[in-house]
Simulated assay, not measured.
Amino acid sequence: MPRLVHDRLTWLIYAQLGVWGFFLYGFGPVVPLLRDEQQTTAAVASLHSTALAVGALIGGFSFARLTARIGRARTLWLALAGVAGGVLALCLLRPIAATLTAVVVLSTFGIILVSSVNVALAEHHGAASSAAISEANAACAGMGVLAPIVIGLSVDAGTGWRPALAVQAGLIALVALAAVAFRIRVPQGAPAVPAAAETRPGRLPRSYWIAWALMGVTGSIEVCLSLWTADVLRSHAGMTPGAASATVASIVAGMFLGRVVGGRIALRVAPIPLLLGALAVSTVGFAVFWAATAGWLAVTGLVIVGFGNAMHYPLAISIALAVAGDQADRAAGYSSYSMAVGFGIAPVLLGAVADGVGPHRAFLLLPVFIAVAAVLAARLGRSIRLRPAPAPAPA
């Protein structure tokens, strides 16, 4: 059985992804509040998700090129600086064109950050990378639990969502100070090389592209829940805007628990059976949430949904990187394109349907996404047989 070693570098990488989680899971509850401020329809407000998709495309295109020129360590810190700048811009600007632009910037650097973290953990932990990536995403979800709560409290206190979201920049500064204080260096990884020296990479295997599609579908599930759950809670469970925004944290709380537990299970259970089990849990949780008219029952369903969703992305990306072999940077960059598809299409589709039939009925799209993800996971299981790499030596 592979062994997961928690050295100082691992904890730093967890923290770097964790601060991204504050924005990633805090932004969903902000979208309905932005819609109220900017007086737009649900479909127009969902363009902020399209902006996430555009940024994901730019970030995915840029990642491998940046690492080839400045190395992974500098790329990672550049990404964190870009996220901090994007958050401050989003909090300071109010017109919809400006907020959309800020979200593009945030998503661009956020995707570069996520790609850097995934590749660093995959290389550092080898056969235990599924568990490491799961735990890193648990840190991301752990910070994400706080964000909706802080935003909801800030809204109910009358100060709005902007001061709460701006906390992100301070968290990034604290992580940078900790890295300096404890003298933790991220491995530079790929050396800087001139463009003329780059060779044409080989083709990624078919199994990678199945995993790629799987990430797009499961990403659609997660982003739709993040962006539109607050609206369903307001319209179907009778919650106030502040309470609905804070309650979105229950999804992330479930994801945090699921990733902590799932990281341990991933050391013992093969990825595909674990992924199919996670999709089944998501289905049960969604059914409870969708049928609930009482707030406490809706929250219960959301925690279960989050628990199931927890392992979708960590398992899919770890499989994708494993089958990519020595093309990890390229595979990580391309994976962001699948997330862009999920971010850009699914929430806009759901928003357009919600304008016609209401957000509650529109949410019936999510079981369809779950079913498609299950079919892809089964197909992926038939197309690959992952061979564990030797466990890394303790650092």
Score class of each variant (00 low, 15 high):
Arg35Trp: 08
Glu37Pro: 07
Asn118Pro: 01
Leu80His: 05
His360Asp: 10
Leu78Val: 08
Val31Leu: 14
His124Gln: 15
Ala197Cys: 09
Arg162Gln: 15
Val83Pro: 00
Leu366His: 07
Leu52Met: 12
Ser115Asn: 10
Ser318Val: 08
Val299Leu: 11
His236Val: 11
Ala178Gln: 06
Gly110Cys: 01
Val87Pro: 01
Ile149Pro: 05
Gly86Ile: 05
Pro29Asp: 06
Leu302Lys: 03
Glu37Phe: 04
Val180Ala: 15
Ser282Asn: 11
Pro390Glu: 13
Gly202Ala: 00
Gln16Asn: 07
Leu92Glu: 12
Ala51Thr: 13
Leu24Pro: 01
Phe63Leu: 06
Val269Ala: 09
Leu121Thr: 02
Ile345Arg: 05
Leu380Asn: 02
Ala213Leu: 15
Ala324Cys: 00
Leu275Ser: 07
Ala127Leu: 08
Gly258Pro: 05
Ile149Asp: 06
Val353Pro: 07
Gly238Leu: 04
Ile345Pro: 09
Gly344Ala: 03
Glu135Pro: 00
Glu222Arg: 02
Arg3Asn: 14
Leu225Lys: 03
Arg35Phe: 08
Phe109Ile: 02
Pro241Gly: 03
Ile111Cys: 07
Val155Ile: 15
Ala166His: 06
Pro367Ile: 13
Ser207Pro: 00
Gly18Leu: 10
Val305Asn: 05
Ser318Thr: 10
Thr293His: 15
Val175Met: 04
Ala266Met: 12
Val145Ile: 14
Ile172Lys: 01
Ile70Phe: 06
Thr300Asp: 11
Ser154Cys: 12
Leu52Ala: 05
Asp355Arg: 01
Ala280Asp: 08
Leu297Trp: 12
Ser220Ala: 15
Ala391Pro: 05
Pro394Gln: 09
His236Ser: 14
Ile345Thr: 13
Ala328Val: 00
Val117His: 02
Ala291Thr: 13
Leu33Cys: 13
Ala192Asn: 09
Leu78Cys: 10
Ala181Gln: 12
Leu24Val: 14
Val31Thr: 11
Ala73Asp: 13
Ser335Asn: 08
Ala292Leu: 10
Ala197Asp: 14
Ala328Met: 06
Val288Pro: 11
Ser154Trp: 14
Val284Phe: 12
